[in-house]
């Protein structure tokens, strides 16, 4: 599927003039059926609404020279703990803020604020993921012209956050050591489209029977290129390397907002 508008790539090939017609011609192909019925052929992606908003976010972030990370994992993989550890150091040389999504409570934003990080909580209530609109509404209240980095902690869920583009520049997938070797295979979208993969809670490895070789092989099967960093918020292992990797990504030596979206067209 095309990450740009969410439509299936097949449609793109059929469209002679993508920009002017796309799927939104004034009148859709219609077939007359018996009993006064008609079949209207629609052929459009229902993710398109979110994709359009995500595209607006992306343009706006770019105009603000803002680098945006979207951090995703299962609930409890250690997103908030990691951000609390990592960001205060990075905040010394970057103006940054976190937008954190949870169904209820402002516990995570409070934890981040206590750690000294500017944080804004989004409550999604029944929804299990953030979408481009919720992010846009939240950043409207943040004063982005003051910022270099925006870190979005998505709602804990390995499935749907991965299919809702927020307009971010980089997607970070976290898998904790307690989740098992085969999760990358079971949740392919999250891991295959990550720009950076973090294996968290490495301090627990001595207590677990995790086969790290198998885990790495499974991650590589889904994602041959993204850097994989093993770290622990508890022991501090890997945090320096992680901070360097974020700095490197944000430095713009790669422009994945172009290349990544081009790749997924094939």
């Amino acid at each position: 599927m095309c990450r740009d508008c969410g439509c299936s790539t097949v449609k793109h090939r059929l469209l002679s003039d993508f920009n002017t017609s796309h799927h939104h011609g004034p009148s859709l192909p219609t077939l007359t059926l018996p009993n006064n019925k008609r079949r209207i052929s629609v052929e459009e992606s229902l993710f398109e609404k979110n994709q359009n908003l995500a595209r607006k976010n992306r343009q706006w972030f770019k105009s603000q020279k803002l680098v945006v990370f979207n951090v995703m994992s299962s609930p409890g993989a250690g997103k908030t703990t990691l951000l609390c550890k990592l960001l205060p150091k990075l905040a010394l040389d970057h103006r940054l803020a976190v937008v954190v999504g949870d169904q209820e409570t402002s516990i995570d934003a409070d934890r981040l604020k206590t750690a000294g990080v500017v944080a804004f909580q989004i409550n999604t209530h029944s929804a299990c993921h953030l979408d481009a609109k919720r992010v846009m509404d939240a950043v409207g209240q943040l004063g982005l012209d003051q910022l270099d980095w925006l870190v979005i902690e998505n709602v804990g869920n390995r499935v749907c956050p991965a299919v809702f583009d927020l307009g971010e520049n980089f997607r970070i997938a976290i898998l904790s050591t307690t989740e098992g070797e085969e999760k990358p295979l079971k949740y392919p979208v999250l891991f295959s489209e990550a720009d950076l993969i973090i294996i968290s809670k490495s301090d627990l490895l001595p207590h677990l029977d995790l086969n790290q070789t198998t885990l790495l092989a499974n991650l590589r099967k889904m994602n041959p290129n993204a850097p994989i960093i093993t770290c622990s918020s508890k022991s501090g292992e890997g945090l320096e390397q992680l901070a360097d990797e974020l700095r490197y990504l944000a430095s713009g030596k790669e422009t994945p907002d172009v290349s990544r979206y081009a790749n997924t067209h094939t």
């Binding site: 969410g6 006064n36 019925k37 079949r39 209207i40 052929s41 052929e43 459009e44 992606s45």
Partner: peptide, 15 residues
């Protein structure tokens, strides 16, 4: 098998 969430078609009438 992919990531599609596609509105394919609909059958309508006028009554």
């Amino acid at each position: 098998s992919g990531r599609e969430f596609q509105f394919v078609s609909m059958e309508v009438d006028d009554v």
